[in-house]
């Protein structure tokens, strides 16, 4: 199932399938947010924003407005 990273639930894991390079800063790509890499939601702040993620072993927080530009495939629930 293909969804955006903004739709991932806590504890869910996925694989990044596409990253919109116009909207996503290079810095985030360099931190490992690239197609093919794994992603997991660790924790969300109130109102589900920002999101605390484990991307490819890197732990980072991004805002929902950024997450909607990252497509993922959920691999397990």
């Amino acid at each position: 199932m293909q969804v955006t990273l903004a739709d991932i639930k806590r504890g869910e894991k996925g694989i990044i399938t596409d990253v919109s390079s116009i909207h996503i800063p290079l810095k985030l790509l360099e931190m490992g947010c690239l197609p093919g890499n794994s992603v997991e939601l660790v924790q969300v702040a109130p109102f589900a924003d920002p999101m605390y993620l484990n991307i490819n072993g890197s732990h980072l927080a991004i805002r929902k407005e950024t997450a909607i530009h990252i497509l993922i495939e959920i691999s397990n629930g």
Binding site: K27, L28, M31, T66
Partner: peptide, 11 residues
């Protein structure tokens, strides 16, 4: 300005 926000959560 492009608002993007990335913060590393170190161990």
């Amino acid at each position: 300005s492009k608002t993007f926000f990335v913060v590393e959560m170190p161990n």
